Simulated scan of single mutants.
Amino acid sequence: MRTLISPAQLRTPRGKAIYWLVFTVVMLLFVAAFAFPMYWAVTGAMKDPAELARTPPTVIPDQWHPEAWGEAWSRLNLLTYFGNTVLVAVGAWLIQLAVDVPAAYALSKLRPVLGNKILALMLATLMVPASALLVPTYVTITDLPVFGVNLINSPAAIWFPAAANAFNIYLLKRFFDQIPGELLEAAVLDGAGQLRILWRIVLPISRPILAVVSILAIVAAWKDFIWPLLVFPDPARQTLSVALQRMEIDMPLNLLLAALVLASVPMVALLLFFQRHILAGLTAGSLKG
């Protein structure tokens, strides 16, 4: 293995000192780049509006106002918008699993005719800008084909367009490809059907990749802005991202920052809690045993 510094040099006291110095500096820079915006938002929420507008800005608040959190929660009616966002995110997550998992399993193990071409067409949709799909998707959900239903102001307007996600199908298929065919053939010989094999065998050993797909689906639905802005004109049904943008004009900046921090807490906690599952799912390349 060739590296910029040879192993012999790294074993010397000078080499070790330089290595740990560079490593520490790089890590501190990365931590600062990610942590400072969060620190700025949290401390900014506890400043008064006059201090927030001061130039140059203060890094540490002169006076702390922790009551801003409670005021933002009650004044902006965040409980309602949290409920709307949770409903949208959970529904989008469930419908993606219900559609993407069987689709990926079929492409991986059932090998339908033209399966590779179908997958290629799915992946090609990732090259289409999301803004180019807004108008046709909006026209579709305002007059749902066959049913003739208008889904404006309904969570289904978020759920149905999110159902078939090409990237998630690709991730799932890649993972299913690593499952030994002998394992599934043994189940078939025991009389198990494809649905039973998927439910009893494939899904239990696919928990890492299911965690990755779940996180991607929930985070995407939670932070989406443009599409919920179009399909939720009723303020009472809007998600957090849309409601905060609508209220920012008449809201003190410190309360807005407090609301933004509160809105981001669930996703940050979710990512921290499931980070091991995410790494395991993304790096899984084979099955043991």
Rank of each mutant, 00 (worst) to 15 (best):
I209V: 14
T239R: 00
F30K: 01
M1W: 11
Q238F: 02
I249Y: 07
P228K: 03
V242M: 01
T142H: 10
V42M: 15
H277K: 09
A221H: 03
I95M: 07
Y81K: 03
D62P: 02
V213Q: 01
W222Y: 04
M1T: 11
L87F: 09
Q63I: 12
L94D: 07
F232P: 05
L10P: 06
Y105M: 05
P136K: 06
F225P: 04
P145V: 11
R207H: 04
A157L: 10
F147T: 14
A17L: 11
A269D: 09
T55Q: 12
I218F: 08
P252E: 03
L195W: 15
P129H: 05
I209M: 12
L171G: 13
A263L: 05
L270T: 03
L184M: 15
A156Y: 13
M122T: 10
F23P: 01
L76P: 07
V113A: 10
Y170P: 13
F36P: 09
L4M: 04
L240Q: 03
K16D: 04
A258L: 00
V149I: 15
I169F: 13
L229F: 10
N165E: 12
I18A: 14
V139G: 04
L184Q: 15
L4W: 09
L52M: 12
F232Y: 11
A263Q: 08
L94W: 03
A103P: 03
L94A: 14
A106S: 11
I179C: 06
T3P: 00
D224S: 03
G44L: 08
Y39P: 08
D100Q: 06
A236P: 00
V59N: 01
K109M: 02
L151K: 05
W64P: 02
L87C: 08
T80Q: 13
R207D: 01
K109G: 00
L76C: 10
L279T: 14
L253W: 01
A104H: 10
V99P: 10
P180C: 15
L203C: 02
V113M: 10
S74V: 12
H65P: 08
D143I: 00
R196Y: 11
W93C: 09
T55W: 12
A164C: 15
M122Q: 09
L270S: 03
F225C: 02
T80P: 01
G193T: 04
A263I: 01
P49G: 04
A217R: 05
V146F: 14
P102I: 09
I226E: 11
P155H: 08
S131D: 09
A243K: 00
P61H: 04
I278C: 02
Q178Y: 00
V90H: 08
V212M: 07
P56V: 06
I118A: 11
L144C: 07
Y19D: 11
R54C: 06
H65R: 05
P49L: 06
L270E: 00
G193H: 14
R111G: 07
L126S: 11
N153P: 14
V188G: 10
L255Q: 05
L287I: 15
G148R: 15
I205D: 01
A35G: 06
Q245G: 03
L262V: 11
P13G: 05
G181T: 13
F232V: 00
L171I: 15
T283L: 10
P7K: 05
